[in-house]
């Protein structure tokens, strides 16, 4: 645990993530303005950054800083919930596959291969076309399409751990399969899972932004980093702030999750330890 906080990557990344989460939670206090407040006045629309509007205003005169801060709520919660769903599915299927082997393993691994064959973004677009775009659907669909790698990872861990002597010892004591899986193998299999999940949060935020940018994710007027970006594409040459700031927020957040993920990997994988 102490090693975790010696890693500069982790401290830096975690610091940025905490700032983002704080922005999301305390959005109301940080931005007294209403993210939906439209101001069509000639001096309110498409204003460049100023003291009054840190990140300027958009074509409807809404404060971009406020919308980005409120958008952090959407983006970060989509990231976490999607990864939570994929963790539940991936860990469970991977555990069953690796522990029991045989037919169950064969079936699950073929399913994983199918999932990994189809480009995720097509799968998501197709599913969203059927279910209709909404925040909830985006979370669920990203979760449902990103568990395959995790399942493989967990399976590989289970394959090696189930042969450990302490697992045999538990078997001799008469431990049930559930007890062996959840008490003996899973706690020891989690290190690579945490790394993968952390990187996964960044990935999910990126997918959400892409979907919202395409209009298939979070629906306007609810602000999300992706759809603020969409608003900006018509004004690339005149109002740069509409694209730069949401883009920077996406970049920073994904980068910080990746930094934490990589830092965790360095700490948890003894082969990489110096």
């Amino acid at each position: 645990m102490r090693l975790v906080f010696k890693q500069k990557k982790i401290i830096f990344g975690l610091g940025l993530i905490i700032i983002m989460i704080a922005l999301a939670i305390f959005a109301k206090f940080i931005c007294p303005q209403d993210p939906y407040q439209i101001n069509l006045g000639e001096h309110e629309k498409l204003q460049p950054p100023s003291f009054e509007h840190f990140f300027g205003t958009d074509d409807l005169g809404r404060d971009v800083f406020t919308r980005i801060v409120y958008g952090a709520r959407i983006s970060i919660s989509v990231g976490f919930i999607a990864v939570l769903i994929s963790l539940l599915i991936g860990v469970l299927l991977g555990a069953v596959s690796g522990y029991y082997g045989g037919k169950a393993d064969w079936l699950i691994m073929r399913l994983v291969e199918i999932m990994l064959c189809i480009p995720t973004i097509f799968l998501i677009l197709m599913a969203l076309a059927f279910l209709g775009p909404s925040i909830r659907n985006v979370m669920i669909i990203i979760g449902l399409t990103s568990w395959a790698g995790l399942a493989r990872l967990v399976r590989a861990e289970f394959l090696t751990l189930r042969e450990r002597d302490y697992v045999l010892a538990a078997k001799i004591l008469g431990a049930s399969d559930a007890r062996i899986i959840f008490r003996h193998i899973l706690p020891n299999a989690l290190s690579p899972v945490w790394v993968n999940a952390t990187l996964g949060v960044g990935g999910a935020i990126l997918i959400e932004a892409a979907l919202s940018f395409l209009g298939l994710g979070v629906q306007i007027p609810t602000p999300s980093w992706g759809n603020i970006l969409t608003d900006g594409i018509y004004y690339v040459d005149s109002a740069w702030w509409l694209m730069i700031f949401p883009g920077l927020f996406i970049l920073t957040t994904v980068l910080s999750f990746n930094l934490v993920g990589e830092g965790l990997r360095d700490v948890l994988d003894p082969r990489l330890r110096k």
């Binding site: 450990r164 045999l168 010892a169 706690p187």
Partner: peptide, 16 residues
């Protein structure tokens, strides 16, 4: 029956 293993590092669950 029960068993005592050879490798004292692999026979105890490190998380317990």
């Amino acid at each position: 029956t029960n068993i005592v293993f050879q490798d004292p590092f692999g026979s105890l669950n490190p998380r317990m």
